[in-house]
Every structure is written in C-alpha cells, then in structure tokens.
Amino acid sequence: MKRVVIFASGSGSNAENLIRFFQNRDNASVIQVLTNNPHAKVLERCKKLKVSALSFNKTALTDTDDVLNILKSNQPDLIVLAGFLWKFPEKILKAFPNRVINVHPALLPKFGGKGMYGMHVHESVVANKETETGITIHYVNEHYDEGAIIFQAKCEVLASDTALDVAEKIHKLEMEHFPLIVDKLLN
C-alpha cells in the first residue's frame, strides 16, 4: 500500500478531499497531515476523519531535522502540498526526490512565485483581465512554483467574474482533478 503525507496551512479542503478519496482504496492511503499553523482548520478535519495530524514551527522545518525525521519514519511514497504556504526546504526535497508535488491555483508559469497563493492569485487573474485560468499540479523544487508541470486543467474567466467567482471555479477543478492525479502518480 502506497503512503501519502499531506502538508497544509489552512482550511484543508484539498487535504480532506484526498483523505476521503483514498479512504476506501487498497492501493494507497493518507497516513498523516502536517501543518505549519497550529490553528488550521485542517487539524479539525483530520480529527473527524481519524487521520494523524501534527503542527510544527519554522524551526522544526528549516533549522532542525524534526520534520525531515518525521517524514523518514513515515516513509511516504508521495508528499503532497495542498495549500501549504511556506517554501519547502531543499533537505526534504533531496531526501524525497521527485516525490513532492503541489497544486497551484493558476496556470503556471502565470501567477506563480512568492506571495502568489489563494485570493492573491485570483485577484491578479481578474485584475489582468485573463480569459482563462486553472490549476497546475507540479513537482516541487527549490523555487516557488517552478517545478516540472505534471497536469493542468483550465476554466473560463468571464468579464463579469470577481475573484470569489474565480476561486469557486478553481476549487471545483481542484476537487475534481487533484485526487485523480495523485492516484495516477502513485500507480
């Protein structure tokens, strides 16, 4: 059975979607969720879903090997960043080469980079009068949103769309495609 560890920073809707997707499968399961936010809603979701969840601070991620050692003990086949807002450390990327992926709420390379997450992305899409946007699932490397692209899905942006409208469309794409791509990568 393949093992998945998820990193999240916020509400955890993508994490919950992935957990539920793999709950009744015999090929893989989400074994743990790690968060850098001790107040993140993802912790509540994990408790309800009976999935191990831990929060950590910046020191544990970057200055010590605490998070790296947790990952090494879990031996994940795939590490999934689902709304994780901190830059991922190179030491973890080196320990798990080509096994760390992220979902980004835009069609990279557009609207990627430091500070481009969540509503910041959707507001930029609307402000730039884009006619389409989407999601990008990509490998994580040492630079924000620059890893090799695995998959993209698009949606139309109407002239009347607000950033909230765009966010809703992106959320639907994530819910539909993210678990399927994770499943495909595990097999």
Rank of each mutant, 00 (worst) to 15 (best):
K2W: 07
K2L: 10
V4Y: 08
I6Q: 07
I6N: 11
F7V: 12
S13K: 13
A15M: 06
A15R: 11
N17K: 14
L18D: 11
L18K: 11
F21N: 05
N24F: 07
R25K: 15
D26V: 10
D26F: 10
D26H: 13
N27A: 00
V30W: 09
V30R: 09
L34M: 07
T35C: 03
N37F: 14
P38V: 13
H39D: 15
A40L: 13
K41V: 10
L43Q: 09
R45T: 12
C46T: 11
K47R: 14
K48N: 12
L49W: 05
K50C: 09
V51R: 04
A53W: 12
A53Q: 13
S55K: 06
K58D: 13
A60P: 04
A60M: 09
D66T: 14
N69R: 05
L71H: 08
K72R: 10
N74F: 07
Q75A: 05
P76V: 10
P76F: 09
P76S: 09
D77M: 01
D77A: 01
L78W: 02
I79D: 06
V80Y: 02
A82W: 05
G83I: 08
L85K: 10
K87P: 05
K87M: 13
I92R: 08
L93V: 02
K94V: 05
P97C: 03
N98I: 06
H104K: 03
P105N: 04
L107Y: 01
L108I: 02
G112D: 01
G112S: 01
K114E: 14
K114T: 11
K114P: 14
K114C: 08
M116E: 02
M116T: 08
Y117M: 00
V121T: 08
H122M: 08
H122W: 10
E123T: 12
S124P: 03
V125N: 00
V126N: 00
V126A: 02
A127S: 11
N128P: 04
N128F: 06
N128W: 07
T131V: 15
E132F: 07
G134T: 06
G134W: 03
T136E: 02
H138V: 00
Y139L: 05
V140D: 01
H143C: 09
Y144G: 08
E146H: 04
G147Y: 06
A148V: 11
I150G: 11
I150V: 15
F151A: 06
F151V: 12
Q152F: 11
Q152V: 13
Q152I: 12
E156Q: 03
V157F: 01
V157G: 03
L158I: 01
S160T: 15
S160G: 01
A163V: 00
A163G: 02
L164R: 02
L164P: 00
D165L: 00
A167E: 09
K169T: 03
K172C: 10
L173N: 05
E174R: 10
M175G: 01
E176G: 02
H177Q: 14
F178V: 09
P179K: 11
D183S: 15
D183F: 06
K184F: 14
L186R: 05
N187S: 14
N187E: 15
